[in-house]
């Protein structure tokens, strides 16, 4: 039912778009058209650039996503260990979180070059603070009575961390993972915008500067598909890692 409505909505949207852009050539030039986009997707698929660009961007995104979440989550969770340290670093985290990632791009390129590393760095940077904040929030929202229970059972702090804090934080960590799929992708694409020779961001940038609007949309479609696949993978991982959650 839901899927049916979604398909219908998509069909109406694409149909309307196709119809309006078929009326005159200028709108078609400015807004592309689904059929032209599909045409470009087909040529990009046959000449291999679609697979290549998607692969490059997917790799950058995935590496940035993993690295950013790994670092952010490790730091965020371990801040639970020391209320003092977490109070000390709090303003710095807020400050880092408020830096627009795009402002870092020129420096990142100077530091990491124009290859894969700079894109991964951009992607990591746009993920890491969010991952840190969500996992820290998860760790700090553990029920204090639950901690007391562990203490009466004789648990050491490291046992409380492993057996209580980490699993309790999984909900928040996964919320962070879902949120940061998009951020990782944005980071990678911004990196490609700044300087690159391949990738979906590169394709979008190049087609855009040549005013080939349908090709921009074609690359954008591939980007959206990539985001959907990654989001789906995170959802699958969550179900795998949290089997105790009742079916809804």
């Amino acid at each position: 039912m839901v899927a049916g409505c979604q398909l219908a909505l998509l069909a109406i949207f694409l149909g309307g778009w196709e119809y309006i852009t078929s009326l005159d050539r200028q709108t078609a030039f400015l807004f592309g058209s689904p059929s032209a986009i599909f045409g470009f997707l087909k040529t990009m698929a046959t000449d291999g650039s679609l697979a290549r660009d998607t692969y490059v961007t997917a790799l950058e995104t995935l590496l940035g996503f993993l690295l950013g979440n790994l670092i952010g989550t490790l730091v965020g969770l371990s801040l639970w260990y020391s209320a003092f340290v977490s109070r000390v670093v709090q303003p710095f985290v807020v400050a880092l979180g408020s830096i627009p990632i795009i402002a870092l791009a020129p420096m990142v390129i100077i530091w990491f070059g124009t290859g894969l590393a700079s894109k991964v760095a951009m992607s990591t940077l746009s993920v890491v603070v969010v991952a840190l904040v969500t996992s820290y929030k998860g760790a700090m929202s553990v029920d204090p009575d639950q901690i007391n229970l562990f203490r009466t059972l004789g648990a050491r702090k490291s046992q409380i961390f492993r057996k209580l804090v980490v699993p309790s934080s999984l909900n928040d960590i996964f919320a962070g993972l879902k949120l940061t799929v998009g951020f990782a992708l944005i980071g990678a694409i911004i990196g490609e915008f700044m300087s690159s020779s391949e990738g979906l961001g590169h394709a979008i940038f190049k087609a855009g500067s040549l005013y080939v609007i349908p090709k921009v949309f074609a690359a954008l479609t591939a980007t959206i598909a990539l985001a959907l696949v990654l989001t789906y993978l995170v959802g699958w991982l969550e179900r795998l890692l949290k089997p105790w959650q009742p079916e809804r």
Binding site: L149, K163, P167
Partner: peptide, 22 residues
């Protein structure tokens, strides 16, 4: 306590063995 404080990611059995595990 009034709250049972069972850990949702553990089965009934492994909730019970928590103390021995610690």
């Amino acid at each position: 306590l009034q709250k049972d404080m069972l850990l949702p990611w553990r089965t009934a059995l492994s909730n019970v063995t928590l103390g021995m595990e610690i």
